[in-house]
């Protein structure tokens, strides 16, 4: 059974660690990056089944990252989930539509709902 691989790009390391623990408990293999550029590098180096991004990060944040991997995502589908502490404005809503973000969670999220969403987006393949 191949593990489904998730990349977490989040600059709040404590929070990223906790997401990692929770997702590993559900059977995912987690890679972490703490800024926009290393997130982009990770996407190009390794194949992932899902991206979990923070909206605001050093080096531009989630949308800047998506802009850089736009061509990559056109060739290979890569679902994206946002986790943010920011209030969702209509501009953010519009960007989410434009970049085809699958789900958006505000901090703190409801763990059950979070895991449910991740499961539906990154099914563990046999």
């Amino acid at each position: 059974m191949a593990l489904s691989k998730i990349l977490i790009v989040e600059d709040e390391i404590e929070f990223a660690n906790m997401m990692k623990i929770r997702l590993e408990l559900s059977g995912y293999k987690i890679t972490m990056a703490t800024d926009t550029q290393s997130g982009v590098d990770a996407v190009f180096n390794e194949e992932f089944n899902l991206l979990i991004l923070d909206l605001m990060m050093p080096g531009g944040g989630g949308f800047a990252l998506l802009e850089q991997i736009k061509d990559y995502r056109e060739k290979r589908p890569l679902p994206v989930v946002f986790v943010t502490g920011k209030t969702i404005t209509s501009e953010v809503q519009a960007m989410i539509g434009a970049f085809q973000v699958s789900a958006l969670f505000t901090k703190p999220y409801d763990p059950a709902e979070f895991i449910q969403t991740i499961k539906s987006l990154a099914q563990i393949s046999d």
Binding site: E12, E14, F15, G85, K107, P108, Y109, P111
Partner: peptide, 10 residues
């Protein structure tokens, strides 16, 4: 929100 999220998740 971020510290609350960390506390809650922990």
């Amino acid at each position: 929100r971020t510290p609350i999220a960390i506390m809650r998740e922990g």
